[in-house]
Simulated assay, not measured.
Amino acid sequence: MTSTIKVDRREGWTAITLNRPDRLNSFNEEMHRALAAALEEAADESCRAVLLTGEGRGFCAGQDLSDRVGKDGPPDLGYTIETFYNPLVRRLRALRKPVVCAVNGVAAGAGANIAFACDIVLAARSARFIQSFAKIGLVPDSGGTFFLPRLIGEARAKALAFTAEPLSAEKAEQWGLIWKVVDDDKLMAEAEALTAHFATQPTQGLALIKEAMQASSANDLDTQLDLERDLQRQAGRTPDYAEGVRAFMEKRQAVFTGRTK
């Protein structure tokens, strides 16, 4: 693993930290590849939850624009998105476990939208979310045009994208963009505790909840009802469902394993 990403494997979960603090953890190709490798490792069944955060005073400032300096001709930004950003967002959404994001400072451009691609976002009170693309004549990417209208509505999404105005963590929570605002000095302790909690829960059930929620915006009611039926059938056949019922009947705390069989 390169130094652009720090990976801390805990009991049942993994903390992944973007580690280019001198560049506000902005992405270059090396960091993209290192993060892809870390998430690939985290897909293993032994890891039951993931925490994503940034080193230093910012979460992620998006693309490192200096990474493009000195190259001949206009850049093919579509290639960069197809090669790095789109696979990253798809990987986060496809992980069969909760992904918690702790936004410890500015989250700008792709950095903001990568946070929104995670399952649960906690933000430091000082954090800011910025759709900075319009400042340099670009379009929100990394799922920005997908997540923003669905989370806060078209009017607010367009205003954030057109103006590139910073959105405070408090306002992001009020609008439903994130789960919770936490005092700066308490952010990591709360994020780690939440991720550790998820690592003790029925992992397969949580994965099926994630699948159902992510499918709902594209489904009509009948399709979603059928999906709930199918996923519930799967959930009912997991060892954790059997353990949960036994624990309920025996009036004790359930001990979930997260296993598929």
Rank of each mutant, 00 (worst) to 15 (best):
E40H: 12
G109A: 11
L92R: 05
P74Q: 12
Y79P: 02
G56A: 03
G105P: 08
E41D: 14
A107P: 01
T80C: 10
P74S: 12
A38L: 05
C47G: 04
V69N: 11
T17N: 05
A108M: 04
I114L: 13
G111K: 03
N28Y: 08
C101I: 13
M31V: 03
A115M: 10
D76E: 01
Q63T: 13
L18C: 11
A115W: 06
R23N: 07
P21R: 10
V106P: 00
R125F: 00
C118K: 06
R33T: 10
R96Y: 00
E55T: 02
G54Q: 11
A110H: 11
V89P: 06
D72I: 10
S26A: 15
A43K: 10
R90I: 00
S66F: 13
D44M: 06
L51R: 02
A43G: 15
H32P: 08
C101R: 02
T14Q: 14
D72F: 11
R23T: 01
F59S: 02
E41P: 10
G105I: 06
A108T: 03
G54C: 12
D119C: 04
D72L: 14
V99D: 05
S26H: 02
V103R: 05
R91C: 04
A108R: 10
A15D: 15
M31Q: 15
L39Y: 05
T53G: 09
N113E: 00
F84A: 08
S66R: 14
D44V: 03
E30A: 13
F84H: 15
Y85A: 13
A42Y: 06
Y79L: 13
P87E: 05
R90E: 07
T14P: 00
N19Y: 07
G56L: 02
A110D: 11
L122R: 08
Y79M: 10
V106D: 02
P21N: 01
E82S: 15
R91Y: 03
Y85W: 11
I16Q: 11
A42Q: 09
V99H: 06
P21W: 08
D67H: 14
E82N: 13
H32L: 07
V106R: 13
